[in-house]
Each structure stands twice: as C-alpha cells, then as structure tokens.
Amino acid sequence: MSDTAAPLARSPIAPSPATVLDGWEVSARAATGASTLSDETPLAKVLVRAPFDGAGREALGVGFGRTLRTDLGSGAVLLVGSAPGEWLALGAPGTAPALRTALEERLAGTGELTSVLDLTHGRALVRLQGPAATAVLAGVCAIDLADTVTPDGTALRTSVAAVVTDVVRDDVAGVRSYLLHCERSSGQYLWDALLDAGSRSAVEVTGFRGLGSGGTAR
C-alpha cells in the first residue's frame, strides 16, 4: 500500500471560501448580521434505536419529541428524541467513536434490542438562527413554529422544502435557533432552498458554529 494524502472530510454543502477544521473542510465565512445559516455537518451524529418506552429510554433520559443537553463521557452532547424508539446524539467533530461507545455502555444491560450506529456521514446538518429564522422556516415548512406549539427543546420530523427533515428547536442564549438534518445527499439542495427562502430576510451564511453557545467556537 502506497502513502496517500491525509483524508479530508467534506460536507455535502460546498463551502466558499473554504478552510479546514478538525479534518473537515468548512466555510471560512463569518456573518455580520443577526440571522445566519451555518453548516454543522462535521458534528458527530450517532443514531440509537431502542424500544420507545423501555429501559433504554430511561437510560437516555429523554423521549420522543424532546431534546436533552448532557455529557455521556465523550463531551457535550445534544440528545434528540427524533422518532418513537429513535434518538440522535450530536457531539463535537471527531467524537463519534467515543460517543458510540458511551451510548452502548449506557444501554448495556437493558435487555432490549438496541442498535447504535454512527451516522456522521449519513446526514447533512445545518443551523438556522436569528430573528428571521422562523419566517424563513415557515416559507418551506408546514409546522406551526409558535412557542406554544414548538417551544425550545422540541424535536420533530416533517417535510422541509419537500425533503424529509428532522427539525430541532435549539435556541442559543435566548436567540431562536433550529437544527435541521436530512439525508446527506439532499444537503446541498436543502441549504440552497433555505437560502432562497431567506433571500428576502437577509439571512447570511456563516462558518461552523458547533454545539457550544451562540456564535463562539466550540
């Protein structure tokens, strides 16, 4: 086997201009406005399957439709109850193997059929944030985004711009913010559709934000 260049991980969303962060090609852009769209695909994404109402759910501490910020030993994690019997754990880039192990340990001994899959490469993940986020999302999504219906910490799956998308309301320091993830191959399309829907609302592209609080690097 010959020597090869170090593998560079790429998001389905083409960055312009590009820079490299933790082995991922990411956007070097920094928005100045309040409403932004950022590509968060480099985040570790681990899927858990288990009975929706059993010991696994108890162990994970969150059920379908809600999110939980926690640390399972691999660093900060956003645990999303993405469907009945299905969870998606999001962590910092590069932590997927550790996160997977942590989840497997957490679920060991439940006696239930549980599956833990690394889907880091299987999904595109973007964050739509700021005062215009609701209006932009309402342009392409039929879900009622009112606080009374989908408050902070809500997780749901629906059609966004005709693509099946997981929508997670994950406000950052009181600022309206949504994480949207879909199958990786639809990522560029979803990105373009959101920018188009936001083209009248001054939504700007900004670089990778990570799971940390508003705007600052992880």
Partner: peptide
C-alpha cells in the same frame, strides 16, 4: 412559488 424540486448528489459530484 419558489422553484423547489429536490435533487440529490453524490459526494463525488464535484
């Protein structure tokens, strides 16, 4: 409305 026909690309598309 807006042109919205979902398309999918492989990572090798570029």
């Amino acid at each position: 409305g807006r042109p919205r026909e979902p398309v999918r690309y492989s990572p090798m598309q570029p």
